[in-house]
């Protein structure tokens, strides 16, 4: 078990995206999500840290950061969605896939995952209109040729409310 006391968002994310992790480490990923929910400015700080990791030249670090981002979208609620739904953060994702910015230096795997996430949010979070603006701009630019197919287990479906026991 990781020691939760004194952990910061940055230290959780460093552990969750450590390039020497042999596989995605869900203890750290969930630790990061929980820390976001505990802190007043958790979502604002988290998206800044995530953007930096997603732009890592190390593919495995970037892939893990995208998994963390996906987990945060599922577990950190509206406050986090609002931060992701700002151009300030969306622009950082656009930079990863656009050849005008970092696109030529980023692996296809990372770019495909970014596009998958953006598309899944346009479907799951229609109220976040800037996500749609960003995604359709990438389509107009020819950076996204066709909508990706999102596996059912990867769609952003909020957990259903718990069923009452023996009503």
């Amino acid at each position: 078990m990781a020691e939760a006391e004194g952990e910061s968002l940055e230290s959780w994310l460093n552990k969750a995206t450590n390039p020497s992790n042999r596989q995605e480490d869900w203890e750290y990923i969930i630790g990061f999500c929980d820390q976001i929910n505990k802190e007043l400015e958790g979502p604002q700080i988290a998206v800044r840290l995530l953007a930096h990791k997603i732009q890592s030249p190390q593919e495995w670090e970037a892939v893990q950061a995208l998994t963390v981002l996906e987990a945060c979208m599922k577990n950190c609620g509206r406050r986090f969605h609002n931060e992701v739904g700002k151009f300030r953060f969306l622009n950082e994702l656009i930079k990863v896939v656009s050849p005008k910015y970092l696109g030529d230096r980023v692996s296809e795997k990372v770019k495909a995952k970014v596009i998958e996430l953006l598309y899944s949010w346009t479907v799951a979070l229609p109220e976040e209109s800037k996500i749609k603006d960003a995604y359709y701009m990438l389509k107009r630019q020819g950076i996204v040729m066709c909508d990706p197919i999102i596996p059912v287990d990867r769609t952003l479906i909020p957990s259903p409310p718990p069923r009452p026991k023996n009503p």
């Binding site: 151009f87 622009n91 656009i94 656009s98 603006d133």
Partner: peptide, 15 residues
């Protein structure tokens, strides 16, 4: 007011 100005400053990246 802070939120309004943040909204005004939030632009899509020029392509």
């Amino acid at each position: 007011l802070g939120e309004e100005s943040e909204e005004r400053d939030d632009h899509l990246l020029p392509m």
